[in-house]
Design a protein around this nucleic acid. Structure first.
Length: 490
RNA sequence: CGGGGCGUGGCUCAGCCUGGUAGAGCACUCGGUUCGGGACCGAGGGGUCGGUGGUUCGAAUCCACUCGCCCCGACCA
């Protein structure tokens, strides 16, 4: 506890400047909050960020929640190399074309030029596919269900903290199946049972589940599915993707197996990923003008205890604070006891609020007399007294309530910012005014999609999984093949 | 990659136009008084002005190039 306080102090300078209000400049608010809350900082390398301890703690919690679900659905973790020989990357044509502009290359080792350039992985289909070709012989070897936690490099022209950085951290699952149906089922299972469940349950971010249009799908996939969340400024964020790779990579890398009928077949593949971008999503979904607001399940500290110093407080007040700390910790609550002398209680209130801690407990001489503590929740900013007895149980309930409240609030926001129209004029009007999701019929042509993007900046985020044909295309008037979710996107 | 903006102690910025070798607030250190919504007093430490080159007796200030960051577009998780 005091150890944690020491750590916090070590990085705790420069906090007094005001955060730009969200309504004034959302982008600036976003970077202000990240830097002031010490989630991340710019590094000397262009486009690369340093994830600081408070930000990395969130990533670790994301890893835990996802890893548990990934394993619960039968997958195992492994690790493949960072460097990929050029020749392997070139094997799948559409894949190469899609990633070529973003690949970083290693052309020299020590003092000698390499005979073959090595790509720093922009994703691992090529290297993993190559290995699968070696490992898979028979239908009895299938399915192969492997996940890896790794870093990725994509040469980005424009970067933003968490949302788009040259190097980022992610999880990428790569599976091989006997049949097309199995691969499709895997792709959808990940989408629903792993990604949607994780993002909605842990991050309290409601998502729209759907399929990507052809122009937005992964380079080399047959079909790409995504979950899309709506940020506080009305722009959509792709929170996760799951790809049905069909037999494209199997054919490119020669991943074959002998089938039950003795014939030689190509495996059916999938791949799917979630990145550190999600941290940006949490910030932009729940944050307010006072700073971060973390859903309890992802909050590095769920409760901060601020003792009120009075007289000989280290003897009179602190022991009570420590007792509460111990009780909460025993309940599995992540607690910070901020017993630093150098800062006043008021300063600490503001500081931990800005850092998004869901619950704050204040305990001073008056409370000790009355057998109570003061309790403040970050989401509603309510402050009230709470009895000392049964406090830990009450906090556990409260954290669950905050988690629920944040999710409900986000759902409400999304509903208020989702509209449906068949009129292109109205469509354009919405995109100019208060953006959000607009559901509109689409004819299925890439031309209309591109034109709409050029004219309104909105793209098709995804298409409903269920049949949604009908009406006429919002732009060209041809029969609609789907009711598409449009939005301006990150 | 196109348009715009910005780089001066840790942070926010003034100084630049009208060259004369750096200032403020906050933060930080030490001592003391405080502490229930970003405390106060006193004493201190810290920068050669993003980088390179040029003009000049002299450059934070003028010129050129360059690097980085932010915002808006085109491309992407």
């Amino acid at each position: 506890m005091s150890g944690d306080a020491q750590k916090a102090k070590a990085g705790g300078e420069g906090q007094v400047t005001a955060i730009t209000p969200r309504s004034e400049d959302f982008s600036r608010w976003y970077t202000d909050v990240i830097r002031r809350a010490e989630l991340a900082d710019y590094s000397p390398v262009k486009g690369c960020m340093v994830i600081r301890p408070y930000g990395y703690a969130i990533w670790e919690l994301i890893q835990q929640g996802l890893d548990r679900r990934i394993k619960a659905t039968g997958h195992v973790n492994a690790y493949f190399p960072l460097l990929i020989p050029q020749s392997l990357l070139l094997k799948e044509a559409e894949h190469v074309e899609g990633f070529a502009p973003q690949v970083a290359w290693v052309t020299r080792g020590g003092t000698e030029d390499l005979e073959e350039p090595l790509a720093i992985r922009p994703t691992s289909e090529a290297i993993i596919g190559t290995m699968y070709a070696k490992w898979i012989q028979s239908w009895r070897d299938l399915p192969v269900l492997i996940n890896q936690w790794a870093n990725i490099v994509r040469w980005e022209k424009v970067t933003r903290l968490f949302l788009r950085t040259t190097e980022f951290l992610w999880q990428e699952g790569h599976t091989a199946h006997e049949t097309a149906e199995e691969a499709e089922a895997e792709t959808l299972k990940i989408l629903h049972e792993v990604y949607r469940d994780f993002v909605e349950t842990e991050l309290a971010m409601p998502v729209v589940v759907g399929r990507k249009s052809d122009s937005e799908k992964f380079a080399g996939a047959d079909r790409t599915y995504s979950i899309e969340a709506l940020m506080g400024d009305g722009r959509a964020l792709q929170a996760a993707t799951s790809h049905n790779l069909g037999q494209n990579f199997a054919k490119a890398f020669g991943i074959q197996f002998q089938a039950r009928d003795k014939s030689l077949q190509h495996i059916w593949g999938t791949s799917w990923g979630i990145t550190t971008r999600l941290i940006g999503g949490v910030i932009m979904t729940h944050g307010d003008d006072n700073g971060l607001v973390f859903p309890p399940r992802i909050a590095p500290y769920q409760v901060v205890i601020v003792p009120i110093p009075r007289g000989n407080w280290r003897e009179t007040v602190l022991p009570h604070a420590k007792a509460i700390f111990d009780e909460l910790t025993a309940q599995g609550v992540r607690v910070m006891l901020d017993d630093r002398d150098a800062y006043t209680p008021g300063w600490k209130f503001a500081e931990w609020e800005m850092r998004g801690v869901p619950v704050r407990l204040e305990i001073g001489p008056k409370d000790i007399e009355k057998g109570q503590v003061m309790l403040a929740r970050r989401d509603t900013r309510e402050k009230l007294s709470a009895g000392r007895d049964g406090l830990a149980a009450r906090i556990v309930d409260l954290l669950a309530d905050i988690q629920r409240t944040l999710f409900d609030r986000a759902v409400k926001f999304r509903e208020e910012h989702t509209s449906e129209t068949t009129s292109y004029d109205e469509f354009k009007q919405i995109m100019e005014g208060r953006p959000g999701f607009v559901i509109a019929p689409w004819c299925g042509s890439a031309e209309c999609e591109a034109q709409i993007k050029a004219e309104t900046q909105a793209t098709i985020r995804n298409l409903p999984l269920e049949e949604s044909a009908g009406g006429v295309c919002v732009r060209c008037g041809q029969p609609g093949v789907a009711r598409a979710y449009f939005a301006k996107a990150y």
